[in-house]
Design a protein around this nucleic acid. Sequence first.
DNA 1: CCGCATACCTAAATGTCTGAGGCATAAGAC
DNA 2: GTCTTATGCCTCAGACATTTAGGTATGCGG
Lengths: 117, 117
Amino acid sequence: MTDTRLHLFKGTFDVLVLKTLSWGPAHGYAISRWIRQNAGEDLKIEEGALYPALRRLESRGLVTAQWQTMEESGRAARVYTLTADGKKALNSELADWQRYVRAFARVLETRPDGALA
Amino acid sequence: MTDTRLHLFKGTFDVLVLKTLSWGPAHGYAISRWIRQNAGEDLKIEEGALYPALRRLESRGLVTAQWQTMEESGRAARVYTLTADGKKALNSELADWQRYVRAFARVLETRPDGALA
DNA sequence: CCGCATACCTAAATGTCTGAGGCATAAGAC
DNA sequence: GTCTTATGCCTCAGACATTTAGGTATGCGG
């Protein structure tokens, strides 16, 4: 079984993390598990991308983090929560993503009338 | 009037160029003009990204380039043509892009049943 | 002869991701 | 009792596309 999962296009990952956190606070491992479950065979989610991304979002003030002891597992985990700014950023980045996809589709689908050169 | 055009997500540009060349040979300036016309207000296409991209595609054997004198303008221009490999690459990168967008949509739309963490 | 569109190009800085590693704890199998 | 698996965190070098900010030169209209 070869791994055919796609690499992330750079710059697209943060919105996925923000969206995940919009369902409620979560720690890193849970976030990656959730994205993995839904993106499944198609996206390659590396932890080497996740943790820096969380730091990035934290330093931008879009999420806050605090260490907690998980009730079920009794393990320590760093739980991230979306801030008000984070929600705004999520909305705007979501809109940007859709705009991007639509613009892309337009270029991919529009046929030129005559020659290009 | 502020420029609200979106930066390119890294790795997504080549397929746009390949697609443009699938309509027929073109030189760099014509390619950027074509993409700009269709992406319009939404994508920011910089020449600093275009020419390196063309070099990249050329070195991957996906396009070939030759200097020509344009009939209309009488100006010299480097005209790029899609190769057979380029067509294959276009198809596969197109499929990848669509797969990526769908996977993304899945993550963005799927609601979790319970708590994440 | 000035400005604008055409047409090409370069290079440093930027920033995200890949790939590969590491540490530690809990639960369950054997 | 110890081995494996899943959980949970992390770091860092290297790769690499893009941004930003320049540059050259020609043809044409006024």
